[in-house]
Design a protein around this nucleic acid. Structure first.
Lengths: 352, 352
DNA sequence: TAAGTTTAGGAAATCGATTTCTAAATTAAA
DNA sequence: TTTAATTTAGAAATCGATTTCCTAAACTTA
């Protein structure tokens, strides 16, 4: 606030004086508590509007010890899945008359720790977090619970740290995606994964392996590649495989960016997608619908996950006194677009 | 906070007791004020760390009247330009040891007003806002300044409401984009615009017109189309023009989504891009680099704009006492990719 | 050494809303 | 009509950090 401007903020004392009652009654009226008459409530509300009163959250927070605000920390807000998630969280918060503070870690552990600090200082009642790629330790999560702030981990979670958890069915989704490739007649299916230390990537790999095993497919060891979630690395790895003596006829990748890399590799190698090579990615990034051919992917229903995640706070935590940790799993859907459909017709989806 | 847990938060009083000094001195020590000795400061800092003290922002805000927090309201966080802008704002805030609260209006006027309310209640010191498509009035902006909160409008601004303003050179950028099309040999250039009430779209239209006029091109009236910023409407409008007796050979659109629509229309009509039709969009959405052909666009350097915008607060407003409203313009760059280059080689860009 | 100046640290008021406790007023029950 | 129960409203304490004012000690300077 500009120090040079002298006018002061309108407070409940001003309303009290104007209406001719005590400040405590004004507070009760504005909070719609039972110990004040309807008549007074109407009067107070009218006067508050007239004086353009704005509730001072700092003061209320200080007294209450709670802020009716929840904080969310995501690696990147411009990743489709996370912005979908945020949209869902926002909606639930709004319905429950809570504020939402959004922070991004930019995949940096240091920034993530800072975001936690910020949210603790802001007195948020609950923190929803999806961990950065760099995050290995959980001391900052411990900090959160030490300050008696509720913690809900989502998507990128640390399973060793006890808390409410909500994730996608990564294993099942990967299994379904690979099954889909098999049904489309692909059999030499390569896997481009992420870090083996992150559960989401580990699960997706396991889903892939399960489907391969079940279909009893012969997969050379070099078809299974970790740390290739980005476009450039995926492009390079895919090209390598195309040049090898026994090239794959399909790719399942743990990210759409990797799928895009494979698409570029196929194109530069002169292979047709989906005729020569099938591709399916993960996360249903917006761009999957505009490439040529359009890229098949896995829809994670981020908005729904966000709603469910925040409802863990509003329903489970706030309403039930007893604190038992919930673990929820959200089902994904295979979006079979052009890049993986050489038999069936491609489908269209209302994805968001 | 969980009411059932009884332990209380560590306060400066606890530190004071532990060190054997007064709370006021602890406060001064933690804020590194001159009226306390280095010895005491060291002592206090050590004890604070030992007791795991966390500064209570609510209390400090209440007393100070300022929160060292700034708020940003954007239409959508998952639009490339806005998430770039936020990244820039975040960086500057971090350097200046300020917190950032991000809100999105989802292009809804009602949500925008709510976001303003929230940020006022949170006691932010400054609000950076880019208006929703629906926003017509400025009462909520007035609310902001009424509460002595600094206001900086960016990108989608209301020029009739006095405040600091920072925008792109929309007119010049549009002019450059159309000049580029002309240089590539296109001459029957159609325009797909947005709402005529939003300055950004009006400016882009004027830039288009200026280039057309300067080159003395003959443009049929039906080449100039407003309210076609979305993929579907652009697709429909482009098809209409392709079917007309005198079809255009190029499109300048005010959004990349519209450009995508034109690309789809051209493809479905059997026209080759860029040979038969040139296309250039606006905003440099991520997907422009993955379509086939890649889409030319205008890079708005959102991150830079975000930095400059927040620096208006940190440099101009905070440091200079005198309040004069700054108006800054950020230059854009034409990213000439495949969809508009039938003569020259397409370029590549480090865009973010 | 006396007087003036600087420095370090503390006491207490303050920010604005909430909440507890108490009392008065009203209603219901006896 | 009296007593008990219920409403309604206010007084005052409180949350935790900051800041103003004040005092005592330490240090200069003449």
């Amino acid at each position: 606030m500009n120090k040079s401007i002298k006018e002061k903020r309108v407070t409940i004392h001003d309303i009290a004086r104007a209406v001719g009652i005590a400040p405590s009654s004004v507070s009760k009226a504005l909070n719609d508590l039972p110990s004040v008459s309807e008549k007074v409530k109407t009067l107070v509300r009218a006067k508050a509007r007239e004086l353009n009163y704005k509730h001072n959250l700092s003061a209320a927070n200080l007294r209450r010890g709670s802020s009716r605000t929840i904080g969310v920390i995501v690696p990147k807000i411009n990743v489709a899945f996370f912005s979908d998630t945020i949209a869902g969280i926002e909606e639930t918060c709004f319905e429950n008359n809570h504020r939402l503070i959004i922070c991004q870690s930019n995949e940096s552990f240091e920034k993530e720790v800072q975001a936690v600090e910020t949210l603790i200082q802001q007195n948020v009642d609950c923190i929803l977090i999806s961990l950065s790629q760099e995050t290995q330790t959980a001391d900052h999560l411990k900090e959160i619970t030490n300050h008696h702030i509720h913690l809900i981990q989502f998507d990128r979670v640390n399973p060793d740290f006890d808390s409410h958890v909500i994730v996608n069915d990564n294993r099942q989704a990967a299994y379904n995606a690979v099954r889909h490739l098999i049904e489309e007649g692909y059999s030499r299916i390569a896997f481009l994964g992420g870090s083996e230390y992150l559960p989401i990537y580990k699960d997706r790999k396991n889903g892939y392996l399960a489907a391969i095993r079940e279909a009893d497919l012969d997969i050379p060891y070099n078809y299974i590649i970790n740390n290739a979630a980005k476009t450039e690395t995926a492009l390079a790895k895919a090209l390598e495989l195309f040049y090898s003596k026994n090239p794959p006829d399909a790719f399942f990748t743990v990210s759409d960016f990797a799928a895009l890399g494979v698409l570029k590799a196929a194109r530069s190698f002169g292979l047709k997608v989906p005729e020569d090579v099938g591709i399916i990615g993960f996360s249903n990034e917006a761009f999957t619908e505009v490439t040529t051919p359009t890229l098949s992917s896995v829809i994670q229903w981020g908005k729904n996950l966000g709603k469910e995640a925040s409802n863990i706070y509003f329903n489970t935590i706030l309403k039930e006194k007893q604190e038992h940790f919930a673990t929820l799993t959200i089902e994904s859907t295979v979006a079979a677009r052009e890049s993986s459909c050489r038999k069936s017709k491609k489908q269209t989806f209302e994805t968001r």
